[in-house]
Amino acid sequence: MKKLAIGKIYLIFVFILLYLPIFYLIVYSFNSGQSMNGWAGFTFNHYHELFSDARMIEIVLNTLIVAVLSSLISTIIGTIGAYWIYQTKNKKIANRILSLNSVLLVSPDVIIGASFLILFTVVGMQLGFLSVLLSHVAFSIPIVVLMVLPKLKEMPKTIIEASDDLGATGYQTLSNIILPYIQPGILAGFFMALTYSLDDFAVTFFVTGNGFSTMAVEIYSRARRGTSLEINALSAIMFLVSLFLVLIYYFISNPKKGGKK
């Protein structure tokens, strides 16, 4: 009634607040002027500019390669970790491991970045692609664990017993029963890892060397030198990609709408 009207106005207000900067970026990516001040006319020029910017293309590719690789690796290790915690009979130990697991989730980015920088320096590793990749794998593992573990826990113990009873080996039970069951959790973990990687700036900023850069780091250094509408074009593309990923994630986590299982 009256109360809901006030609520709706407030909701609309906050939603505008949340999306204004994003749409502002996207709208100005089509501005034929050279800055985000004043609309001069419609153009695709900044997109052409972006696609002919070899350095930017290379950096975007780097970012995607790091994101996909780190997500794959962290999904595998994270799933193994979740299974380990699930298998640990002693609740106390399992909880210890779980809180260690969460350390990187609650730590500020700067701490992760700084401590990884010390780590790579101490072991004498060259900063660059590998150090960035390892860091991304490292900070994505805990979220995968947290996505997979609930699926394992809600799996009825009886189906494993039934499989054993029917003569399956441990490996057969794992691949035929357990993995298919926890698959939604693994997929959700993978997507979370992907976004963690794409979203990261601070950790990469610490552990990247001179020769290697990701999109966020590049935007940071360009933004400090001033704005360029090429970045707006990039933002617009990134927004669409994010929207796409969110939709995929939404359908994975709400299987009643999309999936068959």
Partner: peptide, 10 residues
């Protein structure tokens, strides 16, 4: 899900 740097940039 949109990189924080892009939002700061806006």
């Amino acid at each position: 899900w949109i990189n924080l740097l892009l939002k700061a940039y806006a």
